[in-house]
Amino acid sequence: MIHQSDEGPGPATPGDAIKIRARGINVFYGAKQALFDVSLDVPEKSVTALIGPSGCGKSTFLRCINRMNDTIAGTRVEGRVELDGEDVNDRSIDPVVLRARVGMVFQKPNPFPKTIYENVAYGPRIHGIATTKPELDAIVEKSLKRAGLWSEVADRLQQPGTGLSGGQQQRLVIARAIAVSPEVILMDEPCSALDPIATARIEELIDELRNQYCIVIVTHSMAQAARVSQKTAFFHMGKLVEAGATGDIFTNPRDGRTQDYITGRFG
């Protein structure tokens, strides 16, 4: 079922182009429906936060954008997710190409059991972005610098990435994601396994990356959503309840459930 309305639910932050346009998304895990008719606009070059209680479908929505739901057997996605006006679920779209454009950072840092260098070089290698060693070196250095990790690992690039601390691992994974120059970065609770100091570093990083990428972040922390995002969408029981400029959502929510959630009455 394709819901062809051009009217976004909730006002997008003014003056921003729309990068991702989702319309009428339903997701089923087997017989269980996880998302109900979700429509959301994600603006370019800004951070959009998805908040809501556990199991509300915000991660499921995130995984629709780079088609990671394809990797779970028995999952069915209905509706339209447009990236720059192109439906990512279209038959002509190769998920492999799509995922090179839409990077993803997971809840738990998942560096590959390889060296720091090889972790970052992984994407450029498989996509054939760099052909010579100096090119690859340059990409690795640039990505690590942009992820704010270069100064900490420059002298030990050949050591295993799994030997870093949790916060460093998460920044390594972000470096790995931006090494293939994606347009969108999806972050699924990127700080939930980190301590407050490491969290602060990641949040700083997200704020810097906002200038170049469209970032969608799922978070359980209302404070984090308020700090890093420009737009916030509140999910509840598989439905998108409310979406709008972060300032509006937190100071002046229109829906009672949003109000209850952000004031800590449930969730």
């Binding site: 993803m104 997971f106 992984y122 994407g123 994974v173 790995r176 994601a177």
Partner: peptide, 15 residues
């Protein structure tokens, strides 16, 4: 081998 490693690689656009 943890599923998170496979997810990480697939999300990078690896086949």
């Amino acid at each position: 081998v943890p599923q998170s490693l496979r997810d990480g690689s697939l999300a990078m656009g690896a086949t």
